[in-house]
Design a binder for these strands. Sequence first.
DNA 1: TACATTTCTTAACTTAAGTGAACGTCTTTA
DNA 2: TAAAGACGTTCACTTAAGTTAAGAAATGTA
Lengths: 191, 191
Amino acid sequence: MQDLLFDFLSKYVSLSEDEKNAINSLDIFRSVKKGTTLLEEGQKSTDGYFVLKGCIRTYYLIDGEEKTTAFYTEMEGLTPHCVINKFPSEYYISCVEDSIITVANTEMEAEIFNKFPKFETLCRILSEELLSKQQINFDEFKISSPEQRYLHLIHKRPDLIQRVPQHQLASYLGIKPQSLSRLRARIIKKS
Amino acid sequence: MQDLLFDFLSKYVSLSEDEKNAINSLDIFRSVKKGTTLLEEGQKSTDGYFVLKGCIRTYYLIDGEEKTTAFYTEMEGLTPHCVINKFPSEYYISCVEDSIITVANTEMEAEIFNKFPKFETLCRILSEELLSKQQINFDEFKISSPEQRYLHLIHKRPDLIQRVPQHQLASYLGIKPQSLSRLRARIIKKS
DNA sequence: TACATTTCTTAACTTAAGTGAACGTCTTTA
DNA sequence: TAAAGACGTTCACTTAAGTTAAGAAATGTA
């Protein structure tokens, strides 16, 4: 399982056996069942996640309704906002599928950065890349209609449409489940 | 003018005179007039920007229409996507007001990181913070209606509503200028 | 298997955003 | 200073999303 992680990292830096061992010794690999809640609203945590296999999502609970705002699949990671700002979490994190993930807290990160500065460079580059991609995503969302967003998602992340329930996709697209259903019917009719 | 930058940085790290001098010697401070285009669509660039005073925006030109997707004001910075992905820029960057900014390219960054590893830590922390804030912004955008987004903007960035033209604000809120105009009239009527 | 629950779809109705056009105001500039 | 252009508002009309409700389909569970 570790190989998935090391293969991914090797795209950015080359790791010595020492460095790989240092990571392995941290015992960060976890297998989690579909439906497991990794983080709850109101909870404080210092754990960040990285998905090796499977899918996790973040959602807000608003007036009893789940509003899914992000999905993380293979080779995607997230550091919850509450880890950064030290306040209780404003959202939930939950497993969409049985998944294999890494869980690492801030202290483990600091330890690794200290021993191997290379990792800090890696993390800087990764988060700068992510920030930039995220901005493009946001831009695209703003300048598109719900229908365009859906069509775009089909091209950009076709897997999501298969592996994620419609009502979760809907809020991810910024609309209600009924609207997504209607919008899909409209698209099929057109073609 | 440099003091604005150093005051900001001092919130994250303490800088020695040596380090400040190293930054000053890079000659990164620029004064730019309202309307100046810093980056054009199709252009390649390695420059990142940080706003000390004033306001800059990113916009896409789609079917002859400007779609403004982001504003950067005092103590906010951006690294354009084209700097990260090495492709021609998909958007423009332009000055909304007369501004004082820093302009730094990738090589200068590398040089500073090399001399003062502390700066890389600073940049990692800043970009992780930004990424996290950005995600919260995006979440909020998704779960809100245009009217809620506008009301939220009034509370979160009241200055923007004063200093930025309505039609630029509109696309920033993901709607047409006419809709923003109508939405504002609706809000006034209610209250 | 049978029942309950969740998820998805459909429909009728309401509300709000998109569109195109007109108009007044303000700004730019020739 | 006059003309042109940009900007914001309003309006009538169109289109699509929100809402509420009902029912079908799929899923999970006893």
